[in-house]
Simulated scan of single mutants.
Amino acid sequence: MELTTSELKRCVLVNISGRIDGSTAPELEQTLKTLLDSGHYRFVLDVGGVTFLSSAGIRVLVSTWRAARRFNRGDLRLANVPARISEVLDLTGLNDHFAQFSSTVEAVGSF
């Protein structure tokens, strides 16, 4: 898995590519937790390059989403969601929780 973060005016853009599974989810979790601890609560995750999302990855997304939304401070939004990842979110009932956008520009502009 490869991760890059960019602090924008409205939010933090996190580009993710590769597999998010049990061995890579802790790295993603640590990156997002560090951003939360530094006072960032608005996230756009560009998951266009993600090829696999395991339950460990879903747990990281949900925990970050909850932490960001606590006290109405922010949100976590997904951009460029591949069909396979969208199916996983649909099967778990999480499609309604995460706002999904077809491009990063739309996702960042939604804040």
Rank of each mutant, 00 (worst) to 15 (best):
R42M: 00
G49Y: 04
T64S: 05
T5R: 13
N72Y: 11
Q100D: 02
T31N: 11
E106N: 14
S17Q: 12
G57V: 03
N15S: 14
A68W: 07
L28T: 12
L94Q: 08
F43N: 06
F98C: 10
V47I: 15
A25F: 04
R66I: 07
L53H: 12
S63K: 11
L13Q: 10
T34D: 14
L91Q: 08
V14R: 02
E27N: 10
R59I: 00
D75P: 01
L53K: 08
P82M: 02
V47H: 03
V62Q: 01
T64G: 00
G93T: 09
V88M: 08
R59T: 10
I85M: 13
L8Q: 15
S6M: 10
V50W: 09
I58W: 05
R73E: 10
R19E: 15
V47L: 13
L94N: 03
Q30S: 15
V14D: 05
F98Y: 06
S110I: 03
N72D: 15
L8F: 02
S17R: 14
H40Y: 12
G18N: 06
I16P: 03
M1C: 03
G49H: 02
W65Y: 14
G49E: 05
L94D: 03
L28N: 12
E27M: 12
S55K: 04
A83C: 00
L91N: 10
G49W: 05
I58P: 04
D96K: 14
V108I: 15
N80V: 03
L78R: 06
R69L: 04
N15M: 03
L89P: 09
T34E: 14
L78V: 07
V88A: 07
H40R: 12
